[in-house]
Design a protein around this nucleic acid. Structure first.
Length: 311
DNA sequence: CTCCAGGTATTTT
DNA sequence: AAAATACATGGA
């Protein structure tokens, strides 16, 4: 079976750029990138499916490889994919801002059509935020894979295995020692289990956060949880809830990118960071995403570098 | 050995 | 209120 998702904002959409970002050298265990396509397993209301997502004629095409595919599941996956690749946003104003900023103008060309790659599942997003705190990304992806392969579920197709992120219920029953065996620090283990319990008890959910009236109250409900600071809260709000004006304050990668582009003198120059972000009001999340993107170069771009000539 | 990586909580000025 | 420090782990 094949279904498709129309891309309403095609002007700045480049599937290859999105796929490249997904596969930029790290090992995310919840999807698999193949030529022109990304494969991912989903579970919704007890139904597990495996889908190949590719692009054709201005729409994303989903080939359903495994599963009984109820209408509810199809709708759920369609919504997930639309959120995952941010298909509804008109990027024209963002590209105008990029072009007006000399050190960043090259991005409008080099990254043209790259959509904000989200993480629609807020629990996975929170877990990933906790895992990623203060460690390098390679190690963070290793921890995520160990977690998923130990406590998640998988689908078999051909000779491949496709993993689905563990549920809050599954993780809520763990003890910190269980996660320490996967090389989680004591703190990360405690934080993650606490969050899992909140979701399992329905004390926290995507809808609960979405129902709050504004950004600050959403940030507050997240930072009130032990282990969730401003960085993690803002990260989750942008990756999972599409907050446009979220800034991952303190992010080591963002700071590095801002210094490389000449917007900050050093990592303590937080005022420089703030004033810089003000010029991208309404697009702070997209800008952050593009700054992260700038830290990874395609192999064929290494020599010519995607950075401005002055760098 | 040192420093740091997509931080946070706690303690000390 | 602001600054220093402890916490954990693997990689360069």
């Amino acid at each position: 079976m094949i279904t498709s998702i129309n891309i309403s904002q095609k002007q700045y959409f480049n599937w290859q750029e999105c796929l490249w970002y997904l596969d930029r050298g790290f090992d995310d265990c919840v999807y698999q990138v193949r030529p022109g396509c990304v494969r991912r397993a989903f579970e919704f209301e007890g139904e597990a499916v495996l889908v190949d997502i590719s692009y054709a004629n201005g729409a994303l095409t989903l080939q359903w490889l495994i599963g009984t595919k109820s209408t509810a599941t199809i709708n759920h996956v369609h919504q997930f994919v639309a959120d995952w690749f941010d298909l509804e946003t008109d990027l024209t104003p963002f590209y105008k801002l990029l072009l007006a900023n000399q050190p960043l103008a090259y991005m409008a060309q080099s990254f043209k059509g790259l959509r904000f790659v989200g993480m629609p599942d807020i629990f996975e997003s929170l877990a990933w935020g906790i895992i990623g705190q203060q460690i390098n990304l390679s190690f963070a992806y290793k921890l995520k894979r160990r977690l998923v392969e130990t406590y998640g579920t998988s689908l078999l197709y051909g000779d491949g295995k496709y993993w689905i992120f563990p549920t809050p219920a599954k993780l809520s029953g763990l003890q910190p020692d269980d996660l320490r065996q996967l090389q989680f620090s004591q703190k990360k283990a405690e934080y993650l289990i606490t969050v899992a319990k909140q979701f399992a008890d329905n004390a926290l959910s995507k809808n609960i956060v979405l129902a709050l009236p504004d950004f600050l109250s959403r940030q507050k409900i997240l930072t009130s949880i032990r282990g969730i600071g401003v960085w993690t809260a803002n990260y989750v709000l942008m990756k999972s809830l599409k907050e446009r004006s979220s800034i991952p304050y303190g992010d080591a990668g963002i700071l590095k990118a801002l210094i490389l582009h000449g917007f900050m003198k050093d990592k303590t120059d937080l005022q420089g960071m703030d004033s810089f972000y003000k010029t991208f009001a309404g697009w702070e999340s997209y800008l952050s995403f593009y700054l992260w993107r700038s830290l990874a170069n395609k192999p064929e771009e290494q020599e010519t570098s995607v950075m401005p000539p002055s760098l």
